[in-house]
Nucleic acid binder design. Structure first.
Lengths: 175, 175
DNA sequence: GACACTGGCTAACACCGTTAGCCACCCTGG
DNA sequence: CCAGGGTGGCTAACGGTGTTAGCCAGTGTC
């Protein structure tokens, strides 16, 4: 990215995100992005090195928003796990395509702002009390969210109870 | 699919699976499949309606193998959850690209053999004792597997303990 | 022996990400 | 005031994708 903070670059990223969130990953096309800006696809390369870099930019934005949401949801709570899970689920449902872009592929750690990954993970670490329980809970919420997004669960009322059961099982032993 | 059991169709599906498992999803190309068979891509359409149908065939094969593995792993055990989880994780690690193809998208339920979905789910249902715990455990194993496949966890020794913690938390109350 | 079916083929289309090369505009330095 | 260079567009093109149309050789059947 020539200059990730340049106005035109931020404009491009904004359009890309809009396209992704509204129409899904198959709409996230260099030609579609360019068209939405009134230019042609090759001109994008004057601002952005390529599509992967654009996806990284969207991923970074997503993690920053998610981290903020998780922090806000768990701040000051003395039973933070349910609050964290609710915020996590809400984020994924509000931005399903972005969520999948963020998690589909290996994390582009080299291009992430320093500390962002740890900052995103911190609320869950605090909410579970131990790193291995945090990973187990991370697996649980990630898997549940994806199973919901891919329509894997029947639409009876049971899925809400499954969330509750997982939270209860993974909550740190009370006092 | 003209006739899913026709020898040529089964040959095509076998080649497709080989390509997917050995070289990943970007190698799963009509032209690559055809080349591996010594023909040209358009000729595939004499046997198969299109790429999506081929992916469905791979998905069905995957679920049949997974169901058999889960049944074998949990049969007759009186503590089946750890056995199920081990079999699930082993399947995903043995066939990562196939596993992702099977779970990335909505289940093509209309094209699944009758009862296959239920058969795949049954061992976990038995291992957890209740439908909502089964869904929670499904979320846990699915999420953990994907986080491992996408390299989300640091490569310290902690991930094994996270699996154990999740299993312990989700196991039905002992006798 | 005529006929149809089977399963190959080439050519082509619309789309994808990306590169090369061109050019109009504008800002700056002399 | 004008020259030079950078900025940010453009068209044309390449190799890749899934897919369709249309052709044709071989084979098996009545």
């Amino acid at each position: 990215m020539a200059d990730p903070a340049s106005p035109r670059v931020r404009e491009i990223v904004a359009v890309a995100r809009d396209l992704l969130e509204r129409e899904g990953p198959e709409a996230l096309t260099m030609r579609r992005i360019a068209a939405a800006l009134g230019i042609r696809a090759p001109s994008l390369y004057k601002h952005v090195p390529g599509k992967p870099a654009l996806e990284v930019a969207l991923t970074v934005a997503g993690f920053e928003e998610a981290a903020a949401a998780f922090e806000a949801a768990t701040a000051g709570s003395d039973d933070p796990l349910p609050a964290f899970v609710a915020a996590y689920r809400a984020f994924a449902r509000a931005h399903p395509h972005l969520y999948r872009l963020m998690t589909d592929r290996p994390l582009p750690r080299a291009d992430l702002p320093a500390g962002l990954e740890a900052r995103t993970a911190a609320p869950l670490l605090r909410a579970t009390g131990s790193p291995e329980r945090a990973r187990a809970a991370f697996g649980f919420v990630h898997g549940m969210v994806l199973l919901e997004l891919t329509g894997r669960f029947p639409d009876d009322g049971l899925t809400g109870r499954a969330w509750a059961a997982g939270i209860a099982a993974l909550r740190p032993a009370p006092r």
